[in-house]
Design a protein around this nucleic acid. Sequence first.
RNA 1: UGCCCGAUGGUGUAAUGGCAGCACACCACUCUUUGGAAGUGGUUGUGGAGGUUCGAAUCCUCCUCGGGCAACCA
Length: 781
Amino acid sequence: MKPTTEPHASNFIREIVADHVEAGTYGGRVATRFPPEPNGYPHLGHGMTICLNFGLAQEFGGQTYLRFDDTNPETESEEYARALEEAVRWLGFEPVEVRYASDYFEQFYAWAVDLVKKGLAYVDSQSEEAIRANRGTVTEPGTPSPYRDRPVEENLRLLDEMRRGLHPDGSHVLRARIDTEHGPMAHPNMKLRDPLMYRIRRDAHHYRRGDTWAIYPLYDWAHGQGDAIEGITHSICTLEFDVNRPLYNWYLDAIGIPEPRNHQYEFARFNLDYTVMSKRKLLRLVEEGHVAGWDDPRMPTLAAQRRRGVRPEALRSFFQSLGVTKVNGSIELQQLEYAIRDDLNHIAPRVMAVSRPLKLIVDNLPEETAWIDAPYWPHDVTPPTHAPTSRRVPLTRELWIERDDFSEDPPKGWRRLAPNTEVRLRHSYVIRCTGVEKNDAGEITAVRTEADLSTFDPATGEGQNPEGRKVRGVIHWVSAEHALRAEFRLYDRLFTDPNPGAHEDFLSVINADSLVATEGFVEPSVEDDPADTRYQFERLGYFWQDPEDSTPDALVFNRIVALKDTWGRVLKAETGHHKLTGYDAQLIVHRNPVLRDPASGLSDAERATYDALVDRGVGEEEAAVLAAEDALRDLFEQVVSAHDTPREASVLLVHDLRPALGDRALADSKATPEALATVLRLVEADTLTRNAAGEVASVLVNDGGDAQTIIAERGLAAVRDDAALAPDIDAVLTEHPDEAARYRAGEQRLIGFFMGQVMRRVGKGADAKAVQTLLRERLDA
RNA sequence: UGCCCGAUGGUGUAAUGGCAGCACACCACUCUUUGGAAGUGGUUGUGGAGGUUCGAAUCCUCCUCGGGCAACCA
């Protein structure tokens, strides 16, 4: 495996893959796929999926296919497919091969014929409406189609005719014929009510297959099979497909794909605040002209982020920071912005630009231009190798400064220029404001200043503070004579509400100021740089030239991301303007504790059983479980008849045996009543600790056998005498002197830490009470 | 309302019965020729109620809340 720079943060899917690799489930092989439908431009969500799939395979020495899920000719196109492919490469990944679901159509069809022959699929000739109506609802079962038992020969003939385009759209479909214990068309999972496999699209033109096919497979009848054909091991998709998983497996069973085969795992897609991510909504933004196109830098598409100037490194680190879970949530914009800044900070040379110019005149400077050798990098950034470390910046009497950097009536905390105050010109003199010039309208047209010539030496680039005073403010500037004219495009969030999708019309919360274009100036040095140089314009943010619109004669700079703005925060707080990011206080619902009857959910008959159990000494919670679960209660009675301690038996069965079962039925348990009774006897006799009893129960469930043997084999017999425990306790105390000191200093809760350490050393046989007594004795001594 | 999935500070995510940690955000301070970066410190959390256990974010029960599923979309 080739080492990567970014560490692999773990997540639940990675754990599964790692377990499979270690267990050799697929012979150590890992194969993933990125399976987009080419019906839209890829966005950040796709980026996450790309990084997950490719990253996982990369880490475990596996491979990843790019597979276009092009089963719907009506919405898909070559343009989208190319954009998707480009996005993968831009993010830094190379598919082992590019595949198309449409290349598998012949194989899918052969499998479909096979299913028909097996009686597992049929041609349904109901209308679309009838099919929908007969599917039932989430709460009511559906009705089997009158064509469900159509003879195999007829199905075969019709399917062939459908394929050859002999039937109009909508006249027939091919459906899977799924029988379960719930009866036909009655499974609580709607996906399992005879799902459609093929629909007729006679006149649709597929962008790759042309007109060769008159029928097209649906998602479920394509995806798992595509995975199987490619030998995918881990098929990762988003959460909403979890209900499709049983069908995914049903189809694989039906066509006879043996284990070890592809399996589906789901994770939560992420939402980003102040953004929409659905293809439909993005399409509307583009088509209705709310943005300039799919790659408008305000869009969450990868093309847009790229054009904006975001680097793939930043996105990869952002996705990494997000993690992979099954929790539906929303990411704050700052998390993305942090990743972008963090990436740019160490690769972007610092230069000066003025986005909203104001003329400033330094009256006591000489006429001739002074050229200052100004460092590209701040003291705390190590420049990339081979990067130039400085450039020449012209200093003249007339400069442009930022309009926001001067105030006639500065607010509290102002560290910029104001009448009679001093400020440092970045890389140059300390200047003092001596006056302002205004036009007839009273607007400031120029600021007049004088430089303290002792504070800077243009020849050496050395500067020092004036005698006895510390100048805190620093402002950036460009020479009015030498600066290059430029347009600056300042981007902000596209919406004013963190969750635009929650509004009936998401366009109602569109941010009118999401793009502000200004005319300003940039220092002349940029003229000599490669056009794709990413800069930090000091005190403004990270910028680069727009790759579409910028030309040497008409420079256009995109603001990739603003700098973190502590001053802006202070100002807004003081002026009472609430930050856009502020959330409404969450509604706190205080619920009164209610006294609950554990038996409240039981039927009358179960209630009687429950009462009887409680009378025999069984705890209420346990009694409720036993009353509701007949099989478990039968076992309970058998255990009790072997050893008559109902309370203890109920605890063992409900809290130890049942969880050990997991998803399996009780019938799969290998634990005999007699063995369980023995466990109870041993606990009663203090030969077995309660902790170890759970362990024994778990082994009994999985492997059967008798309690005594298991205890002997695993060394689970109770250990409680001081002599046996002392060595381990002493060892733990010696290994953790710091914790011991903290405990003695009053951090009593650390007893839990020590307990854990000792228990881990001795094993489940250790008697917790004895350990604790001994531990306290030692620690208090 | 049937089935499925989920719930840890404001946000994202760790802790796999044993010290509730990390990052973003926020606040304060240090440093600073970027109100950047960096550094130090701090505020804030296991949805609720019971149960099991020496010990529960973790296991069990019920409740609450959120999401998904009834396209000839994927």
